[in-house]
């Protein structure tokens, strides 16, 4: 446990992650600045903040997933936990906008979904990275990540069903989306905990 905590802290202090975290918080503060109303106007800040946060986390999860697919399991694990730390540490900003916006969606749903989707999307990123390595197109990883993100968001529109797009499900409780993402998250977790010998076999 101590090792995990220390290695996670070490991962968080690395320059790439510090820069990402800075940009992430800057984005949230900017969204608050842009959407927080004055006077007695309706406060809709949560609806925009939570979607911006989710898009940013989805992009980061897919990118880091694909980017660390050729790294060690410990590195992958530390990276995904670092992303989950970002989710937890941005909680006060989301809670502030949620408190004032009074949406109907339960807060635990949106918070839990953000954690779940971040973890699951990291798993999808890992799969994407493995696939690109397999077909020797790892150089196209940036384009592939953006393509995967757009694809995941638009596949629901094509199917007319809430399965992969976290933006539509953030404001409406969707058991289908959470079910799908839970399965992907379980597969990702299994990927982390399986023994190397089993992987080789």
């Amino acid at each position: 446990m101590t090792t995990l905590h220390t290695s996670l802290a070490e991962r968080l202090t690395r320059s790439d992650f510090v820069q990402i975290a800075t940009l992430f918080f800057a984005l949230l503060v900017f969204v608050l600045l842009a959407t927080w109303p004055s006077g007695e106007r309706a406060n809709n800040s949560w609806f925009i903040l939570t979607q911006s946060r989710m898009v940013a986390l989805a992009f980061l999860a897919l990118s880091y997933g694909a980017g660390t697919s050729n790294k060690s399991k410990a590195e992958q694990r530390n990276t995904v936990f670092a992303l989950l730390v970002l989710v937890i540490l941005s909680l006060p900003l989301e809670l502030a906008s949620y408190a004032a916006s009074y949406p109907t969606t339960p807060f635990l749903w949106s918070f839990g979904l953000t954690l779940l989707d971040t973890f699951a999307l990291f798993g999808i990123g890992l799969a994407l990275g493995y696939l690109l390595t397999l077909i020797r197109l790892r150089g196209f990883i940036s384009i592939a990540v953006i393509g995967a993100l757009v694809g995941l968001f638009s596949i629901d529109q094509l199917l007319n069903f809430n399965l992969f797009n976290p933006l539509t499900t953030l404001h409406t409780v969707s058991p289908f989306h959470s079910g799908t993402m839970s399965v992907i998250a379980m597969l990702t977790l299994w990927q982390f905990i399986r023994k190397p010998s089993a992987a080789r076999a």
Binding site: L28, L33, W36, P37, S38, G39, R41, P92, L93, A100
Partner: peptide, 13 residues
């Protein structure tokens, strides 16, 4: 209900 001042909220964030 009036919204809390944007300056305070963004400043605190």
């Amino acid at each position: 209900p009036p919204n809390v001042s944007q300056t305070y909220v963004v400043g605190a964030a």
